[in-house]
Design a protein around this nucleic acid. Structure first.
Lengths: 241, 241
DNA sequence: CGATGATTCAAACAAACGTTTGAATGTTTT
DNA sequence: AAAACATTCAAACGTTTGTTTGAATCATCG
């Protein structure tokens, strides 16, 4: 009996709760967090204004709930995919393409699922990354730290010749290209103004982004001796010849 | 005499005007656009609240003024650098490193100039890129479109074997890595949690980012004929001319 | 000087913000 | 049915928001 009761209570409260989550997600994506009012959310969801504080406690906690609902499964899937690849490899290091795919494919699956946020949801994440609000930063780092640690370790095994510091940098660049691409900001449309890019084919997207990232990760080490040993060096800037 | 009068009037109004710009820039960087109130700006600048509307018209126009003050000279310098390189090359195509440097160095110069915004200003730009507000998007695309078009043409001459569509994509990835790096978001600190990265040495930064981007731009074309995932091992040479 | 225009200032504007309250409703348990 | 709990609701809370107003202050000009 108690089981059934709990399920009923849960499913009932979930109705209002998820209506709020859906409306909040859509509006946060469209206008951003700070620019979206609670009244827009509640009227958009067809629920009472106070329902937000009853179910989530505050606007900040609502945003965290919106993010976790999508990010938690996605990162879990990333780790599961990476784990499966490494099990299949039986100790042998994976290829860069495989590891990148483990990061990329779950994100694409999320972006493709129009019922669950659609591709615009990733724009919300991209925006959250750039948000200076402390509670957002704390939330994201706590959410992403374990996953990134695992992937960094995997890349380290695949690229053993790369110093750890260099790998950190290239992972950073990789995350930049990845996030920008997934977030699909205006810069894309801006560049493609002269030569339009179709963003609807995800398979092709990975085929294009993959080689770019792999080549970057496997790029030869730069000669840093000139700078580290002798900071007085007169030559600056990049080689151009 | 009218000349002198104008100059006096200008320099006088510039006092209040620039005090507002400085305070707004600092606060927009720290808390974001929406989260920053006009009263924080005016009290921080030591001016009256109404001065913002008197000198700029609205909060939105203030943000545009904050952005143009730094972005306009930076993009102009980028184009000048690119133009100079192409003049020196006398018709020969530039190297990827040179073109990337023309994009990167003016941004680094801006980031290094603590008197003029410091490196945190680039975080404001990165945040502006992800902002869904229409007036910000319109402003940025209008501000950046010409510069990007020039650089895209330069890359096209350097990488003539790349189809235009592929070049658009890789430029997009490049902008992603570049913006993320310059913006210095939390993902950097997140990745570097296990292995700290020092962000204070810009020269080293370019030396690391450069090879990553060059390798990505010069990566071999992906085989788009078949879309079945196939893990390819073996060599991926990123060396090219 | 008196006049003119530019700038500053304190004060108030209506609107929207996130949050709280307390009663009304619904639902489950005793 | 009655007590206990969970959820919804309309209304108001006190602040804060961006913006406007009209007088005061300042500098320049005829």
């Amino acid at each position: 009996m108690s089981m059934l009761q709990l399920r009923l209570v849960d499913s009932k409260s979930s109705v209002t709760k998820e209506k709020i989550l859906d409306a909040a997600e859509a509006l946060f994506m469209e206008h951003g967090f700070e620019a979206t009012g609670l009244r827009q959310i509640t009227t958009g969801a067809g629920v009472n204004l106070a329902a937000v504080h009853y179910h989530f406690g505050s606007k900040e906690e609502l945003l965290q709930a919106v993010l976790t609902r999508r990010l938690d499964p996605m990162n879990q899937e990333r780790l599961a995919l990476l784990d499966q690849l490494e099990n299949d490899a039986r100790g042998k290091p994976l290829t860069c393409e495989a590891i990148i795919g483990a990061m990329f494919i779950p994100a694409l699956k999320l972006a493709r699922d129009k019922a669950r946020g659609g591709k615009n949801f990733l724009r919300l994440i991209g925006r959250a990354y750039a948000d200076p609000a402390p509670f957002i930063r704390q939330f994201l780092s706590h959410q992403y730290a374990p996953m990134i640690a695992f992937f960094k370790a995997a890349f380290g095994r695949t690229l053993p010749h790369l110093p750890a510091k260099e790998l950190s940098w290239r992972l950073h660049f990789l995350m930049g290209a990845l996030s920008y691409t997934l977030a699909g900001t205006d810069v894309l449309k801006l560049i493609s103004a002269l030569n339009p890019i179709a963003t609807d084919n995800d398979e092709l997207l990975l085929r294009r982004l993959g080689p770019f990232l792999v080549a970057g990760l496997q790029a030869p080490l730069a000669d840093l001796s000139e700078l580290t040993a002798r900071p007085k060096s007169g030559r600056r800037g990049v080689r151009s010849a």
